[in-house]
């Protein structure tokens, strides 16, 4: 059944990542909070990797009917919306932030 030491490893990774997240993100200034949200939208687009894994797994099984194939494809599409849209809109917003005197930057 469950490999306990593997689960503990994953939990350790989770806890450490939460602490790193709080440390790094608490330093983001309020003026960048909207780009921060769209950037995190792009980062949770990592679910696209999970979607690709399950699509491949689904095609490895004998029964991948149209219903489940469609669901899996939609999962990939939703993840891709996050990844491509998230990074693109963040880039677009950040281009607009400029210093006094500098045209852009």
């Amino acid at each position: 059944m469950t490999d306990i030491s593997h689960l503990l490893q994953l939990l350790t990774v989770l806890v450490l990542a939460v602490f790193v997240g709080f440390e790094v993100i608490s330093k983001v200034p309020t003026t960048l909070h909207t780009p921060l949200m769209s950037a995190t939208n792009a980062i949770h687009g990592i679910v696209l990797v999970g979607a690709i894994v399950v699509v491949a797994a689904l095609f490895g099984t004998p029964l991948h009917g149209p219903l489940f194939t469609t669901l899996a494809t939609v999962a990939v599409a939703l993840g891709a919306i996050n990844v491509f849209g998230g990074f693109a809109v963040t880039e677009r917003m950040l281009q607009m932030f400029r210093r006094k005197g500098n045209p852009r930057g």
């Binding site: 994953l10 790193v20 997240g21 995190t40 999970g50």
Partner: peptide
């Protein structure tokens, strides 16, 4: 996925 999800969750 765990790390990316945790970063976004923290944010």
């Amino acid at each position: 996925l765990i790390i990316c999800g945790a970063l976004v969750g923290a944010s």
